[in-house]
Simulated assay, not measured.
Amino acid sequence: MLLRHAKSDWADAQTPDARRPLSRDGRDACVLVAEHFAAERLAPDLILCSSALRTRQTVQRIAAALPPDVPVLTEDRLYLAGPDELLGRLREVDDGVPNLLLVGHNPGIHALAVGLLAQADRARIPTFPTAALAVLELGTRRWAELGPASTRFGSFVTPRGLRHAS
């Protein structure tokens, strides 16, 4: 599962990027995403989260819809990471972790999502707006074998789509 952080607050231009909190719209989007996690019974066994405040707050705001004991690893190296860095991190995941949630940033999260899909499925994720969630199904049992076109498209939702669906 790949989740882009919810919308952040740009009200104070002096706030360093890594310390920008979620905006009101971002907090509202987290409610929709949490409801989707619960309705679809999406249950990660591990969460990898960028160290940025907005990603950590996104995880906190959807936490009630997640398993209560799911480990959350907050990592500096995921902050604004590109697709190659994100893929490298995913390849390090222990094979005993079947379901993983990665919470990160664009453009890396979008590039990773489409890069993991077969060419025919890439158009199913044309953009990756804030609080969008892509669910991809591994075509391998080993994280170390994750690579281009190694997953199958599961689903892709955005807060706007979830709002219109309810």
Rank of each mutant, 00 (worst) to 15 (best):
C30G: 04
V31C: 14
V33E: 10
V33R: 00
H36K: 00
F37K: 02
A39N: 10
L42R: 11
L42C: 04
A43I: 03
D45K: 15
L46S: 02
L48N: 05
L48K: 02
C49H: 13
R54V: 04
R54N: 01
R54L: 07
T55S: 06
R56S: 14
Q57G: 03
Q57M: 09
R61L: 12
A63Q: 04
A65P: 05
A65K: 00
A65V: 05
P67H: 04
P68F: 07
P68I: 07
D69E: 09
T74S: 11
E75Q: 10
D76I: 12
R77F: 09
R77V: 14
L78W: 01
L78K: 05
L80V: 04
E85W: 00
G88C: 01
L90N: 01
L90W: 03
R91H: 06
R91C: 14
R91Q: 07
E92P: 07
E92H: 04
G96D: 13
G96S: 12
V97W: 08
P98D: 10
L102Q: 12
G104R: 05
N106Q: 10
N106M: 06
G108V: 13
G108D: 00
H110P: 13
H110Q: 09
H110I: 14
V114F: 11
G115M: 14
G115C: 11
L117F: 07
A118Q: 15
Q119D: 07
Q119G: 06
A120E: 15
D121G: 01
R122L: 04
R122H: 04
F128H: 13
T130M: 15
T130H: 11
L133H: 03
A134H: 09
V135R: 14
E137Y: 15
E137Q: 13
E137L: 12
G139C: 05
T140D: 06
R141E: 10
R142Q: 09
R142M: 11
W143P: 04
W143I: 00
E145F: 08
G147D: 07
A149M: 02
S150G: 10
T151L: 10
G154L: 12
F156K: 03
V157F: 02
T158R: 00
P159D: 00
R160G: 13
G161C: 11
